[in-house]
Each structure stands twice: as structure tokens, then as C-alpha cells.
């Protein structure tokens, strides 16, 4: 299989509906703003340039390399996109990549897409942009700035996006923060090295072959400062929040419950049917078994019915 899913794409079911919807709204807002901004940075060329580069990132993700014992590293691409195209176009490019991964390859869910976009297209790009431009400023245009900045941007974008992913899972009550944060963070500190090295290799190639391309993203993009500050804030926030959350695993859920939104919608229903699985059947276990048997019968009934109709339809033709 050429296309291997990365561990950072959250499938549907793992985010609570509320978290998923809030992340969708956040991502949609940023993407809508980015769509307005790209025109100013790239002009008419934006559509072909971003479209083909998104395809290139996609294809670049196929270029995996062996790390050790059968595991392989491959590209996410947020840092490379941010360095080559500037922040707004990179957000659009990564939005395209992550959306197509979900739509066509089921790599990441559709309801969870808002969260995946937020982690990879928004946070990944913002952090990359912040790190890369900061190192560039320190390096004052020297060659090492491109490479050190590129590697650091790629590594940190992966780690921070993974931490965000872990926190979202914790907020959803799917994975306790004291497990998810160290696990996701730890794995992605390694995966991030792979990302950093590939990004470095790509930058080295482009630096030698077409140095001018590395300047498209630098041409002071409209509102680039906002992204820079955003990237800084996100990096700081997650740096503080992640250890806190893992130290108090119930903290996030506690916040959620205090705010009351986890149970708000369900509260009145409790009063209608207390403690029963099936109305009229007071024994939990019995009700569950009954429900199970009924369910299995329904599944097979429907499936058989459809299969029969389908076959009839085929033979009728």
C-alpha cells in the first residue's frame, strides 16, 4: 500500500460532537479569512500554484523512507508549504490536502475534519511560520537560517499539532490527558525528526536549484504578523496546557462539566426515563440481551431483504 495513514488524522467517533463542531467553526473561520488573503499575496496565479503544490505535498507524502525495523517516516508538509508559499496560501494548501485525504482515502473523519484541519492546516502552518520567520530574523539572511529554521519549523509543527490532537481527544473524553498527551507528544517528537529531515532535504534541493522559490513565502504577506503572533501563542499555550492537563487528567473534563455543556442537552431526558434501558423491563442485563437479540435480527432481516431485492433487480434486467 503506497498510501499509509499518519497517526495524526483523527477518525470520526473519537471527538465528541461538541468538540468537533467547535473545531469546525474555528477552522472554517480561519480558512475563510485565509481565502480572502491569498489573492493579495499571489494574485491570479494562486489557483494553479496552490492546486499543484497541494498535489505535490500529497505525492511527497508517498516518498517514505525507512526509519528502523519496518516503520517509516513521511511528510506532512505544513512547514514546507508555509516556507514556500507564506502562511495564508499554506493554510489553503494544507486544507486541500487534509480534506482530500478525508474525502477520498478516509484518512481522518468528515465530522472530525474540522479538528484535523485545525491541527494540521491552522496550527501546523501557524507554528511553522512563526518558527521559520523567527529563525530567519536571527540568522539575518544567512544560509543556515533557512535550514535550521526549516528543520525546527517542521519538527515543532508536528509536535504541537500532535499535542493539540491529544488535548482535543482529552476534551472529548476519549483519551485521558495523562495518557494521550505524553503518548502523542512522545511519538511525534520522533516522527517530527523525520518530518524535519525531509523538509531539510527538500529545502536543500530547492536552495541549490531555484533559490528564488524560497522567497515567495517571505515577501511580507498581508497579515503575516497576525499568523506569527498566532503561532507564538499556540506554541506557548500548548507548552503550558499540555503538562498541566497531563498532571490533572480530569481537569479538562472537569472544566467541561463545570461549564455544563457535556450534559446540557441530555439533562431533561434523564428525568423522562430513569434507569431503564428498555421501557417496562427493569432488569438491565435482560434488557441489554433483549436489545442485542432484537438488533441482530433487525440487521440480518434488513440485509437479507436488500440482498434479495438487489438480486431480483439484477436478474430482471
Amino acid at each position: 500500500m503506497l498510501y499509509s495513514p499518519a497517526p495524526m488524522h483523527i477518525p470520526d467517533g473519537f471527538l465528541s460532537t461538541l468538540v468537533a463542531v467547535v473545531l469546525w467553526i474555528l477552522s472554517a473561520g480561519v480558512i475563510a479569512y485565509a481565502l480572502r488573503r491569498v489573492g493579495k499575496d499571489l494574485g491570479e496565479r494562486q489557483v494553479p500554484l496552490m492546486g499543484v503544490l497541494a498535489a505535490a505535498i500529497f505525492a511527497g507524502q508517498m516518498l517514505n523512507f525507512t526509519v528502523a525495523g519496518g516503520t517509516s517516516g513521511h511528510l506532512l508538509g505544513a512547514a514546507l508549504a508555509a516556507i514556500l508559499l507564506g502562511p495564508w496560501a499554506a493554510i489553503i494548501v494544507m486544507t486541500t490536502v487534509v480534506s482530500i485525504q478525508a474525502l477520498i482515502f478516509q484518512d481522518g473523519g468528515l465530522l472530525a475534519l474540522g479538528g484535523n484541519l485545525f491541527n494540521m492546516a491552522v496550527i501546523g502552518v501557524a507554528v511553522s511560520y512563526f518558527v521559520y520567520t523567527s529563525v530567519q530574523k536571527i540568522a539575518r539572511g544567512q544560509k543556515w537560517g533557512v535550514f535550521v529554521g526549516g528543520f525546527a519549523a517542521a519538527w515543532l509543527s508536528i509536535v504541537v499539532a500532535a499535542l493539540a490532537c491529544a488535548l482535543e481527544l482529552a476534551l472529548s473524553g476519549t483519551s485521558p490527558a495523562n495518557v494521550a498527551v505524553p503518548a502523542m507528544g512522545g511519538i511525534h517528537m520522533l516522527i517530527g525528526v523525520g518530518e524535519g529531515l525531509i523538509t531539510l532535504g527538500a529545502l536543500a534541493f530547492l536552495y541549490a536549484a531555484r533559490r528564488d522559490l524560497l522567497h515567495i513565502g517571505e515577501a511580507a504577506p498581508a497579515g503575516g504578523r497576525a499568523v506569527w503572533v498566532g503561532g507564538l501563542l499556540i506554541a506557548l499555550l500548548l507548552a503550558v496546557l499540555s503538562p498541566l492537563a497531563s498532571a490533572h487528567p480530569d481537569g479538562l473534563e472537569w472544566v467541561a462539566e463545570q461549564k455544563g455543556f457535556l450534559d446540557a442537552a441530555q439533562e431533561p431526558l434523564y428525568n423522562i426515563i430513569p434507569d431503564y434501558l428498555f421501557p417496562g423491563v427493569s432488569n438491565d442485563a435482560l434488557a441489554t440481551i433483549l436489545a442485542g437479540i432484537l438488533g441482530v435480527l433487525i440487521v440480518f432481516g434488513v440485509a437479507l431483504g436488500v440482498a434479495y431485492l438487489r438480486r431480483k433487480q439484477m436478474t430482471d434486467r
Binding site: V52, L53, A59, L63, F65, L75, L200, F205, L213
Partner: peptide
């Protein structure tokens, strides 16, 4: 080394990007 292999993959990604830039023109 792993670093070398990653850089080879990176070089391939770089040339892929370069061709993509030219194609987009």
C-alpha cells in the same frame, strides 16, 4: 544512516516540488 536516507527522500520531495512549481506556470 537514517538522516542520509531522509535527506535523499527530501531531495526527491524537493525535485517534486520544483517540477510542480514549473508545471503550475
Amino acid at each position: 544512516s537514517v538522516a542520509w536516507r531522509a535527506r535523499v527522500a527530501g531531495g526527491m520531495a524537493g525535485s517534486l516540488f520544483l517540477r510542480a512549481f514549473e508545471r503550475s506556470d
